[in-house]
């Protein structure tokens, strides 16, 4: 009791949440799993932004990645496979004061939850989305996902995946009122953090596809890119992500890309080698559904009484000599 009281006091004094304040439990992901890096980046973001834990909600679906909210000492909603988006929308609608994050996987988002994903882009509600794309179903043990490369051998595709993968970034860019799309990789922590921070700061539906390594089922899938920085394309812009001199020494392949340029964003997104990293597209003027749907007046009990009586009036038959006059007067 004393310790927590002291902690509270300290907090009010210097408004300081530490990294530990956002940590909860020990993640149960495999060693080397890219999810760990994403968790670290997000906890750093929360600390940097000093998000009040009670005002922060992480919503997820089902999958290895969707375990994420359990490791955050905030509110968390670990719901159903594929249904994180509509849950998050329902939360955000009446609670603009809450910081809403969605954590989803490639199966969760691009397969079972696709309809919700497409519409979530349309609704453009203010939330930050982390799509952990490991190109495989991790939790259910190695089945091909919609983002698995063609030919990938998995438990359900022993002779190789049959189809071309979906490109999640391009799909986002295909929706007319998309407002923020970025791509990050788990093995460049600095950029991962900066990109998630940019997503967080954007007002609207901010989608970050995080290319995430699954050492358990696809140990060398991204090796060509991890081991050869020249196969990475870093996107920077005065109005986007800045790249530090240290990073620039390693990742020489860079492009100044204006996130307002949707056509160029589409071109960049369509190429997977070199692999682009950065903010591909941002439109700050896209209206958010929660603002469009904000009621003219906030709810009050007396308002309900008055409105209800007005509605009843429309349908009421008054007694013959009642105070309100004869039949039909109230029409």
């Amino acid at each position: 009791m004393t310790t927590s009281a002291t902690r509270c006091l300290l907090r009010t004094l210097d408004e300081n949440y530490a990294l530990e304040d956002y940590q909860s439990g020990v993640p149960r992901w495999c060693i080397g799993c890219g999810d760990n890096a994403i968790l670290a980046a997000v906890q750093r973001l929360c600390r940097d932004e000093q998000l009040p834990p009670e005002k922060t909600v992480f919503v997820s679906g089902i999958g290895c990645s969707s375990r994420f909210p359990h490791y955050m000492h905030t509110y968390g909603f670990h719901g159903l496979h594929g249904r994180a988006f509509p849950v998050a929308e329902g939360i955000k609608l009446k609670r603009p004061d809450l910081h809403v994050f969605v954590v989803t996987g490639d199966g969760d988002c691009c397969s079972i939850g696709t309809a919700h994903w497409i519409h979530a882009i349309r609704y453009n509600m203010n939330m930050t989305v982390l799509m952990h794309d490991n190109g495989i179903y991790g939790l259910t043990k190695n089945q091909a996902s919609p983002t698995s490369p063609q030919g990938l051998k998995s438990n359900t595709t022993p002779r190789g995946a049959h189809l071309e993968p979906i490109n999640p970034v391009s799909v986002n860019l295909g929706i007319r009122n998309v407002s923020f799309v970025a791509q990050a990789v788990d093995w460049i922590p600095e950029l991962l953090h900066d990109i998630i921070a940019a997503a967080y700061h954007h007002k609207g539906f901010s989608f970050v596809r995080v290319v995430q390594r699954c050492p358990e089922y696809l140990p060398d899938r991204y090796d060509p890119w991890v081991k050869n920085p020249d196969r990475m394309l870093l996107l920077s812009h005065a109005d986007g992500i800045q790249i530090s001199p240290e990073l620039s020494r390693v990742y020489r392949h860079q492009e100044k890309h204006d996130p307002a340029d949707r056509n160029r964003a589409r071109e960049i997104a369509s190429v997977s080698d070199p692999m682009p990293v950065g903010v591909l597209y941002r439109n700050r003027n896209m209206p958010c559904y929660e603002d469009l749907r904000e009621p003219d007046k906030p709810y009050t009990p007396s308002m309900v009484g008055a409105a209800l009586n007005r509605e009843f009036d429309k349908f009421t038959i008054w007694p013959e000599n009642g105070e309100d006059g004869g039949a039909g007067k109230r029409g």
Binding site: E89, G90, H116, M303
Partner: peptide, 22 residues
Amino acid sequence: NVGGMVHQAEDEIAACAFAIGA
């Protein structure tokens, strides 16, 4: 009129999940 709203979701699953979120 009472500060409420009807959300027409993309399907019934989403409608129910949305209501649950709210």
